Amino acid sequence: MEDSGLSWRVWAILSAGFAALTAILAKLGVAGVPSDVATLVRTVVILAFAAAIVAATGQGAALASIGGRSLLFLVLSGLATGASWLCYFRALSLGDAGRVAPIDKLSVVFVAVFAALFLGETLSPAGWLGVGLIAGGAVLVAVSG
């Protein structure tokens, strides 16, 4: 991937900011719309946006060079993303965005555990403490009314 000059931390912060906007905008958009239909609309927009970026940056040829193993895991990741979005929009249609989004972010905890178990990645003790605090915060949000 081309180096844009921005560090992974900047991209991660931007991701978090856009994810926050996603929750607020989705909560407003799902009002009066079946959650699965809302998910479809969001998915079509993301597909068009990603296709435009690939076309604009001239990366289309890379599609033909994706190997079988990578394609398998990308397809599985896409299915997991779809399932996550369906569940997320259903939760947003039923609950408050301020409570749904933090619980959804338990994915951070799951990623840390799964990365350690399946990818051999490690975190420092301070890192695991941070993961534990995220889990604790999500529990507090879930049980508080």
Rank of each mutant, 00 (worst) to 15 (best):
G82K: 06
A138C: 13
P125M: 08
R99P: 01
S35H: 14
F18M: 15
S77E: 02
I103R: 02
R69L: 11
L74F: 11
L63Y: 14
S70L: 01
L123Q: 08
L6I: 02
L40P: 04
A16E: 06
V100H: 04
L47Y: 00
S93A: 14
A61W: 12
S65C: 12
G120E: 01
S77Y: 10
A61R: 14
A16M: 04
F118T: 13
A19Q: 11
F118A: 13
A31M: 10
W8Q: 07
L74T: 13
A126L: 15
T43G: 01
G32P: 02
L86F: 15
Y88A: 00
L86M: 09
S7R: 15
L40M: 07
L21M: 11
C87S: 13
V109P: 13
P102G: 04
V143K: 02
A19F: 11
V131N: 07
G137Y: 11
L129T: 08
F110W: 01
A56P: 01
S35C: 05
A23I: 02
L123Y: 06
S107E: 08
F73A: 06
S15I: 02
L94V: 06
D3P: 06
V45L: 05
S70Y: 02
A80R: 04
V41L: 05
E2F: 14
G98I: 03
V131K: 13
L6E: 07
W8N: 11
D96Y: 08
G17V: 03
S107L: 00
V44Y: 02
G60F: 14
A64S: 12
A31E: 15
L76R: 10
S84M: 10
A138L: 15
A38K: 03
T22G: 00
P125D: 08
D104Y: 14
V54F: 10
L72F: 13
C87Y: 08
G67C: 08
L72Q: 06
L6P: 09
T57W: 09
A50N: 06
G132M: 10
A51K: 08
F73T: 05
L25A: 14
R42V: 00
W8H: 12
R99A: 14
F73W: 10
A135F: 15
S84F: 12
P34W: 00
A23K: 05
I66M: 06
V131D: 02
D3E: 08
L25D: 09
V100D: 05
A20K: 03
A61L: 14
R99C: 09
A126Y: 15
G127L: 14
L133S: 15
G32L: 00
W85N: 06
V75R: 06
L71H: 09
W128S: 13
G132S: 09
V108K: 00
A62V: 13
V111F: 11
A80M: 10
A38H: 11
G137Q: 09
K105S: 04
I24W: 08
A16H: 03
G137V: 05
G145D: 09
V100G: 03
S4E: 06
S84C: 05
A62H: 15
L72H: 03
T22S: 04
V30D: 07
G82E: 03
E121M: 08
L14D: 05
G5C: 13
G137S: 13
L117V: 15
A61F: 09
T22F: 03
S35D: 03
L14K: 10
G32R: 02
G82V: 08
G29I: 01
Q59E: 12
I103K: 05
S107Y: 02
T81I: 02
F110L: 06
